[in-house]
């Protein structure tokens, strides 16, 4: 699976990258800020299987990146947010804008499974 990861915290992105690549065997492209992430997504977003966006990034936050990306691109790939926010209103926003969210702190050994779960649960929901 090709994974796009936008995360400004270098430590977290190292961990997530290691988990996805070495534990899940996925191919990860990492970008460390919102503006660049949006640019790259508009250019080559269709080549990824899943897009992971950190919610809190300086400049353009995850929700804004997702909103502009979905508006400007015809073929939208599934977006999952990474966020330390867990209020009901925030969760609702994550579900409205993307496929769902993974709360921080997350367990990297569970990360691949969590992504799979979100992708498949949404598939089931759309199917029904």
């Amino acid at each position: 699976m090709k994974v796009f990861l936008a995360e400004d915290d270098a430590n977290i992105s190292t961990i997530a990258k290691m988990a996805l690549e070495q534990l899940g065997g996925h191919q990860v492209t990492h970008i460390d800020n919102g503006e660049k992430a949006l640019e790259k997504l508009i250019a080559e977003g269709h080549t990824y299987d899943v897009i992971l966006l950190d919610e809190m990034m300086p400049g353009l936050n995850g929700l804004a990146v997702c909103e502009q990306y979905t508006q400007q691109v015809a073929e939208v790939r599934p977006v999952i947010f990474l966020s330390a926010k867990s209020q009901a209103s925030d969760v609702k926003q994550f579900e409205e804008h993307g496929r769902g969210y993974i709360p921080k702190p997350f367990d990297p050994t569970q990360l691949c499974q969590q992504i799979e779960n979100i992708l498949s649960s949404k598939k089931n929901r759309s199917a029904s």
Partner: peptide, 13 residues
């Protein structure tokens, strides 16, 4: 939560 994500993640890995 941000530093804790790194600590927990590193330990877990």
């Amino acid at each position: 939560r941000t530093p804790l994500t790194s600590i927990k993640g590193s330990l877990s890995l």
